[in-house]
Each structure stands twice: as structure tokens, then as C-alpha cells.
Design a binder for these strands. Structure first.
Lengths: 230, 230
DNA sequence: AGGTTAACGGCACTGAGTGCCAGTCAACAA
DNA sequence: TTGTTGACTGGCACTCAGTGCCGTTAACCT
């Protein structure tokens, strides 16, 4: 691979840039896998992609960005989903749509996603970067949930808890799918897991109240049953 | 500050090293605040602390470590708490003790913790590093919860959700305390918030079941009330 | 006093990331 | 056909983080 991308293409535009970008990503994935992340220099990646070192940094701000998932795009899309959401849409539905928006980023190129996933979990630097990336989603979710729950009792706490829980659950489903090699017939299973968490969500606000009320009801029922038998 | 730490102290040991370390941290905090993180070089920090540049890297593996919280220690202590925990201790209690163990790291030197907090949230590089650090706690919590919930229905999912929720809630309480300037009389409030989350926890496993049962009970009660009125 | 140990600090090196600039190609205008 | 403009390229030089090496120095031991 990477032998294409011949030299004669100065002055490109649009589709040309996209091709160079793909070449750089492919070269980075290949080199990181064979030589290891730390033992691969940006010069080598650029050379393998047929461009100059300086050009690499015109496509990616850091070496890590050549292999990391494009969270910038994902965050922008999720922000858009939140911004355009109607206030009367249930939180569970909204959160589900936001998660699926992120999932789409990974289903576009499953093979690349799997390669990224594998590397991300082998290289500490990439793993930490991924943690930070996921945290950006978490903050975004929590920020929007905080607005939704503003005024409600424990709104702040509940926003943090629900946001963290949802992102963690989505992440779990996504990773399970990627760890399995991102099979095409696994996407629906992943979506199903997303939906499962969402279905669980509407119950949360009533958590304490539900437990208390159930306890009272159960007590009455038990006494009634006991009384009926007596 | 930092004018002390005179030059005549080659060959130190134990308490000497601790003093140098404090000097470096103090110099880093001071310089990062005045000149900014990116515009402060390691050379300047070392010089301000009265040591050579090479020595800085004998105390901290990276520039960021001079200002970041010592998560290595925190993670080790939490791991110890989990390792020594009895299997019959309620999860809520265990998770509370783990959180308090981390809190102790911050109450040792509140002023320093506040300075770190402020800088961490101003400098993107430090913020991302902190995200990664918190994620290490999250993974540790989830890993242990997974063992506890092994075999139970949805154990994997519940471990991820509970772990993420607890860490998020603890983090929220900790940050609120730090944002308020880490007042001594705020520590108890922070602990109270920790406890609150822990108290909420035992209800979670019943979440779905509780909701379903309550729904059924409520339905019957409503029908009964409606029937009584008719 | 002489030897051992451990920390120090200087030096030189690699590699990431950046500013600057001149060269090149595509497109468009005269 | 011949400028002219604008965007992309890649080389050069620079800063700075991080590391290996090594001679030096202080403290400690015998």
C-alpha cells in the first residue's frame, strides 16, 4: 500500500486534499502497526504518503491526530442535534439520537475504526487522548442535560450522573462492537444497546421517589395479604 | 517566593528531595499563573527553583506533571481499598470509602489544590490530561464493580454505568468544593455529597423492576380509585 | 583519609511543532 | 497567449520537551 500517490500533483484542491489526507492516515496506521507508535516519526509518515514533513502538519495539528478519531466532527454534530432539539422531545430519545450520530462516524469506515481502536488501546498516549476525547462528549451531554434539568431538584447532580452514565454505556456498546471487528451485522446490536440505555433513562428522575412509594405500597399490600390470610 | 532554596546543597537525601520537589511545584504554579503555561519553559521553572534543567526531569517525567494532581498515588490507594475490601461490604459503602480516599489527596494542601484546579481548567493541555487522569479512576472503579456484579444480569452494563455515575458525581462534588476555594468548612459538605450518591446507589439494581412493579401497582390503584368513585 | 553512593548539572541529541518564504500549479482575466 | 491571483507545497531554521551520557560533588561509611 501507499505506493500510489505519485509525485506529480502540486497544486490540488478539494478532492485532492481529501486524497492526501487518506494517504497520510493509511501511512500512519500502517507504520504505527508495524514499527510502533513511538518509533515512527512524522517524517516517515509523510515520506510514506509521498508528501513533505511540513505538509503533514497542514493536515493534522499533531502526530496523534493522524490516528485519532475525528472527535471535532462528532462533537459538532452532537452539538447540532442538541441545538435543534425540541424541548418536548423526551430526554431518552434525544440522548439516543445524539449517540447514534456519533456511531455514524465509526460505521462510515469500519476497517479504519477497528485499526484505530486497536492502536488506541495499545499506546498509552493515544489512550489518554481518547479519554480526553470522550470526556468532551461527556461535557457536551452534561451541559445540555443541565439546561434541561435546570430548576428541577438535584438538576446539577442528575445531569452529571445521567450524562456520565449514558456516555459510558454508549462507549461500552461501541467498544464491544469495535472489539468484535466491527461486523456489519453488529451495528444493529450496537444500536439496540444504545436504545436499551435510553429506555432505562426515563425512570431515573423518579429513582428515590419510586423506591419510597414502592416501599409504602408493598408494605400495604403485604399487610393486606397477611390480613387476608389471617 | 522561591528566593530561598539556595544553591549550596549538592547531594541531598529524603527530606532534601521533598524540599526540592516543593520548590519546583511552587515555581511552576507561580510561573504558569503569571506567564501562562505555554509561555513558560522547563528551564525557567528549574531556574526559579534553583536547580538545573536536567534535575527537573529527575523529579517530574513531564512539564505537565509539575502541576497535575498526583493521580498515581490516588489510584494506588483506591486500588488498595478495593483489594482489601470484604465481599460482604455493601457496594455503596465501598465506593464511598474509595471516593473519600481520593478526597484526602486534595485536603492535604487545599491552597495548592485550588491553584492546580484553576490552571487545569484554563489550559487545554492540562484539562485533557486531567480528563485522562479521571478516566483512570473510572476504569478502576468499573473494573472492580465488574467483578462484584459478575454473574448478575447486565453486570457489565451496570458496572460501567454505576462506575461512571459515581466518578462523575464525586468529581462534581470535588470540583464544586475546589471552585469555592476549598474552604475547610466545605470538606464536610463535599463528603456529604459523596454519601448522598452512595445512598442512592443500592436502589439502582432494582431500577427496571421497580418501575415496572410500580406501574402495575399504580395502574391497579388508579382503577380501584376510579371504580370506587364510579 | 579513602571509598562508596547518590544526586546534581552540563552537554549533546532526537523529534514534535511552528514561522517564514520561495517555488509551483490551477484558474481566471485581458 | 500571456499575465495575475490564490492556494498548496516543501524546505529551512528555530524553539522546546524529553533523554542518554558523563564528569562532579556532597554525604555517608569504614
Amino acid at each position: 500500500m501507499t505506493e500510489a500517490t505519485s509525485r506529480v500533483r502540486r497544486g490540488r484542491s478539494a478532492e485532492g486534499r481529501a486524497e492526501v489526507r487518506r494517504s497520510l492516515v493509511a501511512a500512519a496506521v500502517e507504520l504505527f502497526r508495524t514499527r510502533g507508535y513511538d518509533d515512527t516519526t512524522v517524517d516517515e509518515i509523510a515520506a510514506a504518503a509521498g508528501v513533505g514533513r511540513r505538509t503533514f502538519f497542514r493536515y493534522f495539528p499533531t502526530k496523534e491526530d493522524a490516528i485519532s478519531a475525528d472527535h471535532e466532527t462528532g462533537l459538532a454534530r452532537v452539538a447540532e442535534v442538541f441545538a435543534n432539539a425540541h424541548a418536548d422531545e423526551p430526554t431518552a430519545s434525544l440522548v439516543l439520537r445524539a449517540g447514534e450520530t456519533v456511531l455514524d462516524l465509526y460505521t462510515d469506515d469500519p476497517a479504519l475504526s477497528v485499526a484505530r481502536f486497536a492502536l488506541t488501546h495499545e499506546v498509552p498516549a493515544l489512550r489518554d487522548r481518547e479519554s480526553a476525547g470522550v470526556d468532551h462528549y461527556r461535557r457536551l451531554f452534561i451541559r445540555h442535560l443541565r439546561e434541561r434539568l435546570a430548576g428541577e431538584p438535584d438538576g446539577e447532580l442528575r445531569a452529571a450522573v445521567i450524562g456520565a452514565a449514558v456516555v459510558a454505556a454508549h462507549n461500552l456498546a461501541l467498544r464491544a462492537w469495535l472489539a468484535a471487528g466491527a461486523p456489519a451485522d453488529g451495528i444493529d446490536a450496537c444500536r439496540a444497546r444504545f436504545r436499551r440505555v435510553a429506555d432505562l433513562l426515563p425512570v431515573e428522575p423518579e429513582l428515590t421517589a419510586v423506591a419510597q412509594r414502592l416501599e409504602a405500597v408493598a408494605g400495604r399490600l403485604e399487610r393486606r395479604v397477611a390480613g387476608g390470610r389471617a
